[in-house]
């Protein structure tokens, strides 16, 4: 996988970041955004996957291991290797950690909904984890750090108000391929780097199987579509298939709602978010 990553970055050099510089900027900005909001500690969910691992390693660089709390929140069907991988990252970084088994509350709820689809269950689990992180945030006086990368934000491959919720998200401007590159650079354990990405909602699930395309393919497409602003004709000339272009552009459009706050129906002259415009960092 590491050599596969190197091959990918050679084939698509435009996806390669200056890793030391990117880590330097992300670490400095993460530290500043958290500290000026009045916090010294951060808390984040650790799934055993590469995204939350990278967020963890960045947080440790920014705040030191004593100010980072990693929370593992497995469900009874979560794969055992996910937990092992998360534990390896915890012992490697030396951060404080805790494990919260979410099976009792999830099962209690779905007892009355036996026919719920796995999508509904997965979303419920993601939101359950979010409420735990926000409660622990208050408990520890620690801000919640996000783990959603740019690829999944654009594709809408995440749960609204679930894994997408956080105070600061250091990964939101990194394509999945770039998450892999920075993870390798920053020293995320090999077992995490090399396994297939999975939301781990059911057995043998992988993101790429569920999405129907590989992250490398979609990252290259997203780069040409968004960063280079190529037209559809130009994308076809570049060799991207019509079904992939269609599927991805539809996903981006259809999931725009996940990237925005709820709509406010306008009545006043200064509506929150419309013509009442301030940065979050107001006065910070």
């Amino acid at each position: 996988m590491s050599t596969q990553l190197e091959e990918q970055l050679l084939a698509a050099p435009y996806l390669a970041l200056d890793a030391p510089l990117a880590v330097e900027i992300l670490t400095a900005a993460l530290k500043e955004e958290v500290e000026k909001a009045g916090f010294r500690k951060v808390v984040l969910g650790l799934s055993g996957g590469i995204d939350s691992a990278l967020s963890l390693y960045l947080a440790v660089r920014a705040f030191g291991k004593d100010n980072v709390i990693a929370v593992c929140m497995p469900y009874r069907t979560s794969s055992a290797s996910s937990l092992t991988d998360a534990e390896e990252a915890i012992s490697d970084t030396g951060v404080q950690s805790l494990k919260v088994d979410i099976s009792p509350q999830i099962d209690a709820y779905f007892e009355f909904m036996p026919d719920a689809t796995s999508l509904r269950k997965g979303n419920k689990m993601a939101r359950e984890r979010m409420t735990i992180l926000y409660d622990l945030s208050a408990h520890f006086g620690a801000l919640v750090i996000g783990t959603s990368n740019r690829t999944e934000l654009l594709l809408g491959y995440g749960t609204q108000f679930g894994d997408s919720a956080s105070a600061v998200n250091p990964l939101g401007d990194l394509y999945k391929t770039q998450v892999r590159q920075l993870s390798k650079f920053i020293g995320v354990p090999r077992s995490i780097l090399e396994k297939a990405p999975s939301a781990d909602l059911w057995e043998d699930q992988t993101d790429e199987k569920e999405l129907g395309f590989s992250y490398f393919d979609v990252d290259r497409l997203l780069y040409h579509l968004l960063d280079r602003r190529l037209t559809k004709e130009q994308l076809l000339e570049q060799g991207f298939s019509n079904p992939l272009i269609e599927q991805v552009t539809q996903r981006i459009t259809r999931n725009q709602y996940k990237r925005r706050m709820p709509l406010i129906l306008k009545i006043s002259n200064r509506t929150v978010g419309v013509d009442f415009r301030y940065l979050r960092d107001w006065g910070l």
Binding site: A29, L279, D281
Partner: peptide
């Protein structure tokens, strides 16, 4: 410094 995630270098 940063403003809403934007870093000035």
């Amino acid at each position: 410094g940063t403003e809403d995630g934007v870093s000035f270098y």
